[in-house]
Amino acid sequence: MWSISDKGEREFTGGKEDWAAVAHIAENCPGFKPDDEDEMVADEAVSCYNCRYRRWTIKSFVCCK
């Protein structure tokens, strides 16, 4: 589910459209914090895609928490 980059960053391997998986991850993540409303893209309120600590990459996102 996660790959580790050369920089030691955790990148989600499911890409930018795996809505159910990132909702499940975020629901169980103590570090989840909602981003500004304008930056939210997932319909599920609690989702890595809506988290302040996700940093978008070309294919997916990196978890910065």
């Binding site: 990459t57 070309i58 910065c64």
Partner: peptide
Amino acid sequence: RHQLLIHPDIPYTSHN
């Protein structure tokens, strides 16, 4: 809000 390129060479915060 305008989305710009996501790329490793661009030092954006989280969404550029």
